[in-house]
Amino acid sequence: MNNEEKGMSLIVKTVTRWLKGFIFLFGAYIVVFGHLSPGGGFPGGVVFAATFILITLAFGREYALKKIGKILASELDSLGALLFLIIATLGIYFTGIFFSNFIEKFHPTGNFKLFSSGTIPLCNISIGIKVGASLFMIFIILSIVRVVFEDGKGKLITTEKKREK
């Protein structure tokens, strides 16, 4: 039980240390190139969350929470949602239509370029941030809290250390 708090074995830790950057990079690729290749904000965000869940499983909860805390995760969650809403609302300001694509849509040298299609990449990035942070938060919440049965009654306890004050 004490062993589980510190994470898995050395092999898993080493492989995780090497792979986590590449997995995060893959998620970033899926998000940023979402308007050109299969993918988009949602799957990329899930890959982001999977990176942090991998770190949590391999190194233990305390290590991962030191990297990205619960408060930072909830802030990123709100930030992504707000960014998406702001991009949608800026359409009203520029063209008068909610959710209109107000940035220049075409790259001068042709299609299939990274900087094209207006607001779609920005929306993808905001959704990626939002989904990644919120799914990581779900995992953290569900792994911190557990139900313990005492005298036939279910009781919700936390395995998190109680905060000072």
């Binding site: 308007h35 290749s37 299969p38 993918g39 075409f106 299939f112 094209s116 299609s117």
Partner: peptide, 20 residues
């Protein structure tokens, strides 16, 4: 829309409300 991925152009441009 200028997006080569039609799925993304639908969910984020034509049908942005759904994604919201």
């Amino acid at each position: 829309t200028g997006a080569a991925n039609i799925v993304n152009s639908v969910i984020l441009d034509y049908r942005g409300y759904d994604t919201l």
